[in-house]
Amino acid sequence: MSRLRRMPPRRRSYDQYCAAARALDAVGDRWTLLIVRELLAGSRRYTDLHADLPGVSTDVLASRLKDMERDGLATRRKLPPPAAAFVYELTERGRGLLPVLDALATWGAPELAERRPTDAVRAHWFALPLLSLFDQLGTPGTVEVRLDEGVFHIVLGDGAPVYGEGPAPAPDARLVLDADTCRAVGGGALAVEDGVRDGRIEVSGEGGIAKVLRGE
Rank of each mutant, 00 (worst) to 15 (best):
D119K: 08
L79I: 11
W107L: 14
V87Q: 07
L34K: 09
L98I: 07
D59C: 01
A62R: 10
L39V: 03
A105C: 03
L130G: 01
S43Y: 00
L53K: 10
R115I: 15
V27F: 07
L34A: 03
V36Y: 02
P80D: 09
D48P: 01
D71M: 13
T58P: 04
S43M: 04
A41E: 05
A113V: 09
A83T: 01
A83S: 12
V27E: 02
Y88E: 05
A62K: 14
G72C: 09
G42C: 06
E114T: 15
L131R: 00
E69L: 06
D48R: 03
A84V: 00
G72S: 12
R115S: 09
L104V: 13
A105H: 11
R93L: 12
L133K: 06
F126D: 14
R77I: 06
A74Y: 05
A120R: 14
T47D: 15
A113F: 03
V56N: 11
R93M: 06
S57I: 08
E89A: 08
A41L: 13
T106W: 09
V100H: 01
T58G: 04
V56A: 11
A113I: 14
R76A: 12
A74G: 12
R76M: 06
T91A: 14
K78Y: 10
P82W: 05
A105E: 15
R37K: 11
A23Y: 00
A23I: 09
A123H: 04
L112E: 08
R93Q: 07
M68P: 09
D25C: 06
G96S: 05
D102Q: 14
A74R: 13
G96D: 06
E92R: 15
L131S: 04
L79R: 02
Y46E: 12
T47K: 13
P54V: 09
